[in-house]
Design a protein around this nucleic acid. Structure first.
Lengths: 225, 225
DNA sequence: CCAATAATTTAGGACACACTAAAACGAGTT
DNA sequence: AACTCGTTTTAGTGTGTCCTAAATTATTGG
């Protein structure tokens, strides 16, 4: 197989992948990478140069970075490991929705592909992780569902929550406490302008409305119905 | 808790622990540590100096190294992680006796204590790992069974295999193939002098004798009966 | 079109951990 | 008591990854 990647390299690839996925395939900016990895931009420039030389990504100075097919494949392997781990830890070892992330984050760099496949098998080859994110396949393809951020949905829409960001355990705890999870049905009652709060009604029968802020609404991906 | 230890530091502590355990509490020589970790003695000297400064061990130059109580506790935590992992991977994920070691070796530095305790719980708080080695407790104590190497046993003795070294998958495969595993009953039929081969008879009923070499006999720990 | 601002890169260093080559040490033999 | 040999340590380097401070480039409001 391809030479083993260091922990740092894997983190960079995963970060770049997730940034360019969020932005729909655009270049990832040095700054964004630095913020996501909690490093200084200067450090990122250095590593990016190295990764560009090794063919994992293309770097247009001052413009940003994009993964090559090889780099994307490596990134997807890490993402697969992470998501299978989250699913396994929750399903088989009683981890909670809100605190698997950190454990998976460390383990994803240490587990072998063999172990991941055993976990995937034990889980019945899941297609989505517990936060609703699609799990890349063994051979490096990933489903790209056409979900929309709840923040973008027009008032009056009836939607179903499909995916939730997994990287902030506080947030996850809160979402769980109000019942906003994948598969929850939501009616968008009102949406204030200028990125204002959104009023939603949960489930089919609930009568109580909830108001959620923009930040929260941005990390909930929903399907229109 | 105590500041997290690096991967290298954990490896050193574990190595030193296992050397001084093998030798019954004696000092661990720089050379032995280097060989076990596949490093040069010079590198070991450097790291040992650092660990001595941080209070994990005592270093008498040119004489060797011994873990302090703090260092031993840290070492035992790593050993516990390793052994619980081996047990879990075999029991729950279908790993084989002969190839868990490497996987556990990498994971032991990445898993949290929380995860280890969940695994231990799922396994029913095992006291021994699949190779028969005692698992240190959460609070850092370890059983020290009075086992003897098969190589040391007098001819005519009837013994029971209790523990097998886990660090060579070839060897483990072979031992499994001839049925030499923890709990196997063995009659020592003959023992050639000058570290010569040992003839054994397996089980209570078997009639076929086996001849095994010194290296093999040295890594089988048995209980006299 | 230019200056201010924000993003990015360069330059120079630090830290952890490994290595090689050479010097220092200690123990057993003569 | 001196020599020899294996062990251990010192000295000097290299690699990977990060940092700060300063220089550079792109963008945008005037």
């Amino acid at each position: 197989m391809t030479a083993a990647l260091s922990r740092s390299v894997e983190d960079y690839l995963k970060a770049i992948f997730s940034i360019s996925e969020r932005s729909g395939g655009a270049h990832a900016a040095t700054n964004e990478i630095a913020e996501l990895l909690a490093l200084t931009p200067a450090s990122v420039t250095g590593m990016v140069k190295k990764l560009a030389e090794s063919g994992m990504l293309e770097h247009e100075p001052y413009r940003g970075v994009r993964l090559t097919p090889g780099g994307e494949k490596a990134a997807l392997a890490v993402v697969r490991r992470h998501r299978i781990l989250e699913a396994y830890l929750i399903t088989k070892l009683g981890y909670d929705w809100s605190n698997v992330h950190d454990e998976a984050e460390r383990l994803e760099h240490a587990v072998s592909d063999d172990l991941i496949e055993r976990m995937a098998f034990a889980l019945g080859e899941p297609k989505y992780d517990p936060h609703g994110a699609p799990i890349p396949t063994r051979d490096g393809t990933i489903e790209r569902p056409a979900y929309v951020a709840l923040a973008e949905v027009a008032p009056g829409s009836r939607v179903k929550v499909r995916q939730v960001s997994d990287d902030d355990s506080e947030r996850l705890r809160y979402l769980k406490s109000i019942g906003l999870m994948p598969m929850t049905e939501v009616l968008v009652v009102d949406k204030q302008p200028f990125d204002g709060p959104i009023t939603i009604r949960l489930g089919a029968t609930a009568t109580v409305d909830r108001v959620i802020g923009k930040e929260l609404a941005a990390c909930l991906l929903v399907e229109l119905r």
